[in-house]
């Protein structure tokens, strides 16, 4: 599963994670720091996308500052219903992450909505469609960190 990354790949990933240059030609700035040319930087990033190391490039917004609130939702799903229930939940654009975990509850997803009504509507639809009535809701109060350090 793990991909072989060389030192330059790691340096590029770190700069993209922590210090994306806000200038006209950001990849040129990255290349200058790493002693490689701009096009090598871009082609390495393309390769990192292709092998699945990078899954997204772009802005990360603070949902709260844009009037949205995020919550983590957890429920217990029996083994044989996992795919079926995941399909119902994942259909919503407002559901951005969903993971199967060991322990109980075992299905954990995130829900981002811009009103309490919308949140309650989606949750009650999920309850209705899955027949699972017990759903735990953890609204976010404060975030301290959202980033994978590499």
């Amino acid at each position: 599963m793990e991909c072989l990354l060389d030192e330059k790949d790691h340096e590029i990933l770190q700069m993209l994670q922590n210090d994306f240059p806000l200038v006209s030609e950001p990849y040129k700035v990255i290349g200058d720091k790493l002693w490689i040319d701009e096009h090598s930087v871009i082609s390495r990033i393309v390769r990192l996308f292709q092998n699945g190391v990078i899954r997204y490039i772009g802005p990360f917004f603070d949902s709260k500052k844009l009037g949205y609130s995020g919550c983590l939702v957890a429920l217990d799903v029996t083994e044989e219903r996992i795919d079926e229930v995941a399909e119902i939940i994942n259909k919503y654009d407002e559901v951005t992450h969903n993971y199967l975990r060991d322990g109980s509850p075992n299905m954990w997803f995130t829900l981002i909505t811009n009103s309490e009504e919308q949140k309650q509507k989606i949750l009650s639809e999920i309850k209705e469609k899955t027949g699972i009535k017990e759903i735990l809701l953890f609204s976010s109060k404060k975030y301290f960190k959202v980033k994978v350090d590499i």
Binding site: L16, N18, I57
Partner: peptide, 17 residues
């Protein structure tokens, strides 16, 4: 002002070890 947390990438943790 915090509307954008950062510009950057999201990586798949499993792929970086």
């Amino acid at each position: 002002n915090g509307i954008i947390r950062r510009i950057g990438i999201a990586v798949k943790p499993q792929k970086v070890g």
